[in-house]
């Protein structure tokens, strides 16, 4: 087909304009001099300067990062375990139950997850005296619970597509099942584990609804801080904060993608070079 798909190309242009115009507009207005966030009053970087002075924002960002790193690490461990159990252990009692428990949080509306966890924490405090107050621990537990299921799905699908003979080969060469997992399976799926970690990290960093139910006074994460501000309307300092966050994440993701692309290209070159030397 040599005809250029004009219709599809214009849909793409429209679609990407739709994706990026709101974000660009937000970035532009973060440099607005005016206090009125939506009316242009000249160029200024004053809101960024104010951001640096805002202790609340800095504290919230630090807490968010702490929670996100802890969450991502625990979620990767637990999610990987669940993914391995579902993909590799064909018959065990309660397999259907585990598979249901892994998929259910994915489709559970966040409000319900949030409320139910809050009730659990309240009743646990009543019955066993823990958690005494809600904060870092309760938020992290909540985040681990729903982000581990994303990791489990990623790991499970990676394991399903993995060449089983790699594991058989290791076993054939004398490795017990547990060693096979450590020596072969985990290193081979390492990229999936990394993307699972990153996904859990961003999900945790981004979460508002579940955090709003499981956090307590004095434990304000960055999204909760933003949430409490934006409920009151659009303000230029939030524009500046949003710009910082979006650019940080955007550049980070783009950089990661570029590095992965480069590695992939190098690998492809290696393979091409290797294949060309096949002479008996």
């Amino acid at each position: 087909m040599n005809r250029r798909p004009v219709f599809l190309i214009s849909c793409l242009c429209f679609g990407f304009a739709f994706f990026y115009i709101p974000i660009l507009s937000l970035i532009v207005f973060s440099f607005n001099k005016s206090r009125l966030a939506t009316v242009w009053g000249g160029f200024s970087t004053q809101w960024y300067a104010k951001l640096l002075d805002n202790d609340q924002v800095i504290k919230a960002a630090v807490l968010s990062l702490q929670i996100a790193v802890t969450t991502a690490t625990f979620a990767t461990v637990l999610g990987t375990m669940a993914g391995i159990a579902l993909a590799r252990f064909q018959r065990f009692r309660g397999r259907a139950g585990l598979s249901g428990l892994v998929t259910a949080p994915l489709v559970m509306p966040e409000v319900i997850t949030g409320i139910s966890l809050l009730m659990l924490f309240i009743y646990m405090a009543e019955w066993i005296g823990w958690p005494g107050s809600r904060g870092f621990t309760t938020i992290t537990i909540a985040h681990i619970t729903f982000s581990m299921t994303y990791v489990a799905v990623i790991v499970q699908s990676r394991l399903t597509s993995m060449d089983l003979s790699l594991e058989e080969a290791a076993m054939d060469l004398g490795a017990r099942p547990w060693r096979v997992l450590v020596d072969v399976t985990l290193p081979v799926i390492a990229p999936a584990l990394l993307s699972g970690w990153l996904l859990a990290f961003t999900i945790s960093l981004d979460d508002v609804v579940i955090t709003s139910f499981t956090s307590g006074p004095g434990s304000t994460t960055l999204p909760i801080y933003i949430w409490s501000k934006v409920k009151l309307g659009v303000t230029p300092d939030i524009n500046a904060l949003a710009t910082v966050i979006i650019l940080t994440v955007g550049i980070g993701v783009a950089l990661a993608a570029y590095i992965m692309h480069r590695a992939e290209a190098r690998r492809e070159r290696d393979v091409q070079m290797a294949l060309s030397q096949d002479t008996p």
Partner: peptide, 11 residues
């Protein structure tokens, strides 16, 4: 065993 796919550990 020598596997059909060779099953060499890629890492």
């Amino acid at each position: 065993m020598m596997f059909q796919s060779y099953a060499l550990f890629p890492h």
